[in-house]
């Protein structure tokens, strides 16, 4: 290294290290403020929790060339329309259960987690639940006794019984319904949803 060259000197690179780090960090802070405001529940990309009272389905967006969640008419979960507060409480219980039962060390959620069991991002819309009318009850039955109601699609991999109560199981189903309504920029790739009845 030629020490006469300023660009190769320790002083030059020290300044570079400080300035580059500072500038990048400041940009990150600005982007963080913007992103946090756009992923707060109740915004365009991340719907409010009471979306569980509505029908969530998946539609091709020509403008973005991806599949995007659409929310329409009334479709209360377990036949009961919830107030905003009740919906928020149910979602809270669902999230606490998902964390406490350590779902993420077998499944992925929004693609993050472990790869032993299917991704849960669009689990609510999965074809495996046969049709919309029996879906939520099938999901609760599965969560309460995953061994007897195993959904292993011909493999011998099955979920253990994690001792969920019925309330927790319903809350997890509510959570999965809410999560399926998040705009994930088309992830997972070209997802084929459950048969969606025409409105």
């Amino acid at each position: 290294m030629n020490r006469e060259n300023y660009w190769a000197s320790q002083t030059f690179w020290k300044k570079c290290a400080i300035w580059v780090t500072a500038v990048m960090f400041v940009i990150l802070i600005f982007l963080t403020f913007d992103s946090v405001s756009k992923i707060t529940a109740g915004t365009e990309r991340v719907p409010e929790y009471s979306v569980i009272n509505k029908k969530v389905f998946y539609k091709y967006s020509e403008a973005r060339d991806i599949l995007v969640p659409e929310i329409c008419c009334e479709a209360p979960l377990f036949g009961k329309k919830l107030s905003n507060d009740e919906a928020a409480d149910l979602i809270d219980l669902g999230k606490l259960t998902i964390q406490a039962k350590n779902c993420m060390n077998c499944h992925t959620l929004l693609g993050n987690g472990a790869y032993y069991a299917p991704d849960l991002t669009k689990a609510w819309l999965d074809q495996g639940w046969i049709n919309e009318s029996i879906r939520e009850n099938l999901m609760v039955d599965f969560l309460l006794d995953p061994e007897a109601n195993a959904r292993s699609f011909g493999t011998n991999r099955k979920m253990p019984n994690l001792g969920l109560t019925e309330d927790e199981a319903k809350a997890v189903v509510a959570y999965l319904k809410w999560m399926s309504a998040i705009d994930t920029n088309g992830f997972p790739a070209w997802f084929k949803p459950i048969y969606q009845e025409e409105e």
């Binding site: 570079c16 982007l31 991340v46």
Partner: peptide, 27 residues
């Protein structure tokens, strides 16, 4: 110093590759 400049220069905003699919904006 070269490594710090390059590492933080790319790595801090490289955080964005985890923000493709979690509901965060398209930028």
């Amino acid at each position: 110093y070269v490594e710090v400049a390059l590492m933080f220069g790319s790595g801090i905003l490289g955080l964005g590759h985890h923000y493709f699919w979690i509901g965060t904006p398209e930028y």
